[in-house]
Structure formats: structure tokens, C-alpha cells
């Protein structure tokens, strides 16, 4: 069974919601970023989303834009993210990894090679923000051939007809972008998320993750009611941004790292408390 399916099944049987943590790959530098990755599962991250930095992140707010700039300045590439995944997998074979980014670097890397390397190195799913169903066939099929899931996004603007189009090619889980906006924006209106999530639930058994605008343990707890997972990004990345001020290439036991990891523990704790 695939790692993603196994994770959701096990969490469902424990009646728990998954915490998906987003970090930008290579932020603030590749060494520190790897230390953070390795520490995430023990702090309560159930699934790890790694951002692939892009020069023009059109769906991201300032926090993740700056993280991408730091990562690129530190020389991060898709190849280096795969190296990080390999190092991570030496210690952890159970926590699913999802790569998230924009189409151009993936195309430039080579779609088939990318899919192949995802499978070889232990990546379980891929989200490409600027590939809506109308344009994702090439990447989706390449990933599918390697048994890697293409995670599709659903937005508040998605109507019922489009929802069906999205579901028809979806695998792994569905990612409900809870606000019509960019990452780091204000939290979504709960009633709106409830209504959309209910509609999605009616049409599919795939696990549902809710993301965008979820920052605090309290947000995570509230939003977790509507799906199987919550995604937290900007508020983690904001804490990582502060590491930069202190020192490069931090190990996971470095005292500075505590602020990042305590935040993950608090998010995880909030989800477990509501289980």
C-alpha cells in the first residue's frame, strides 16, 4: 500500500486528523532545511510538504515568497531537494513526502525524469500549483506511471461541474484551498469551508486536506473538523525565517531550532486533543 493511503488509513482508525507541515526546501540553507525535515515527524508532522522554490511564485504571499528567495540564494534546486529526501528516507520510511511547486522548474528538470526520481527517492505525491486539470495531463500521467500521486487542488471558486472534472483525475488526497487568495492570507470563514467540504465529501472518498490561512493551533483544531488533514505553511516558514538571523546550517538540536519545533508540537497537540 502506498505511504499516503497507509497514513490516512491509520489516522482514520485512530480517529485522528493529519497535520501536514509545509516547509520550503533549502530554506534558509540546505543543511538547516534537512535538519528541520528530519525533526518534523517526531514533533508530530504526519505528512511533510516540501516547497520547490521558484523565482515567480504567483500563488504565494510575502512569507513564502521570501522563503523561496532565501532557498534560491542558498543554491537550492530540485536535485538538491531530492538529495534531502534521500537523506531523510535513510532514517524514516513511513512519513509521506509531498513536493509542491510551480510547473516551470519541473518541466525544465524533465517531466519523466522528475516522476522517475520521485518514485526512486521516496516522494509520494506532487502538487503543481499552476497546473489545473486542463493542463496537468503530461505531469499527471508521468507521475501515475511511477505510482506517484498527483494531488489536485479545489478552490472556493470551484463549482460543481469543475469539481467533477477535478475528482475524475485525482489521487492521493484532495487539497481544499480554503480561501480565494494567496498563501499566508487571513483564515477562511468557517461556514464557507464547512459547506464546501461537505459538498466534496459527498462526491469522493479520497482524503481531504484543508489549507491556506491556517496558522495557530486553534486554527488547526477548528479547520480539522472539516477534513482529514490540515496544512500549515506560512506560520512555520515565518519561524524558520527567524533562524536566518542567527546562524547557518543548524542541527536539529540547536537551541534556536526550538521555536520552530515547539510550534509544530503545539499544532500537533491541538489536533490530538480534538481527536
Amino acid at each position: 500500500m502506498k505511504r499516503l493511503a497507509k497514513t490516512f488509513e491509520s489516522l482514520r482508525s485512530q480517529k485522528r486528523k493529519a497535520l501536514i507541515t509545509f516547509v520550503m526546501g533549502g530554506d534558509p540553507d540546505v543543511g538547516t532545511s534537512l535538519s528541520i525535515l528530519k525533526a518534523l515527524p517526531s514533533c508530530g508532522a504526519d505528512i511533510i510538504e516540501i516547497g520547490m522554490p521558484f523565482s515567480d511564485p504567483m500563488a504565494d504571499g510575502p512569507v513564502i515568497q521570501l522563503a523561496g528567495e532565501r532557498a534560491l540564494a542558498g543554491g537550492c534546486t530540485i536535485a538538491k531537494i531530492f538529495d534531502m529526501v534521500v537523506a531523510f528516507r535513510k532514517e524514516n520510511s513511513s512519513t509521506p513526502i509531498v513536493l509542491m511547486g510551480y510547473a516551470n522548474p519541473v518541466y525544465r528538470y524533465g517531466v519523466d525524469k522528475f516522476a522517475h526520481d520521485c518514485a526512486d527517492f521516496g516522494v509520494d505525491g506532487v502538487i503543481v500549483v499552476d497546473l489545473p486539470p486542463e493542463e496537468d495531463q503530461i505531469v499527471r500521467e508521468a507521475l501515475g506511471n511511477q505510482f506517484v500521486d498527483m494531488i489536485r487542488l479545489i478552490a472556493p471558486t470551484t463549482d460543481e461541474a469543475r469539481l467533477q472534472t477535478i475528482l475524475d483525475g485525482a489521487s492521493g488526497f484532495l487539497y481544499y484551498v480554503s480561501i480565494a487568495g494567496i498563501t499566508g492570507a487571513a483564515k477562511a470563514n468557517l461556514d464557507s469551508v464547512r459547506a464546501h467540504a461537505a459538498l466534496i465529501r459527498e462526491k469522493t472518498d479520497l482524503p481531504l486536506a484543508v489549507g491556506f490561512g491556517i496558522k495557530t493551533p486553534n486554527d488547526a483544531q477548528e479547520m480539522s473538523a472539516f477534513g482529514d488533514a490540515v496544512v500549515v505553511g506560512s506560520s512555520i516558514v515565518e519561524k524558520i525565517a527567524q533562524l536566518r538571523e542567527k546562524s547557518d546550517r543548524l542541527g536539529q538540536d540547536a537551541p534556536e531550532m526550538a521555536a520552530v519545533l515547539d510550534h509544530i508540537r503545539a499544532l500537533s497537540g491541538a489536533l490530538k486533543a480534538s481527536a
Binding site: 510547473a103 500549483v129 499552476d130 497546473l131 487542488l153 478552490a155 471558486t157 470551484t158 469543475r162 487568495g181
Partner: peptide, 9 residues
């Protein structure tokens, strides 16, 4: 049309 799903509709 290489845009985020939010913009597609």
C-alpha cells in the same frame, strides 16, 4: 491556461 485552480473558473 497555467493558473491556480482558484482562477480557472
Amino acid at each position: 491556461r497555467f493558473v491556480a485552480e482558484t482562477l480557472m473558473p
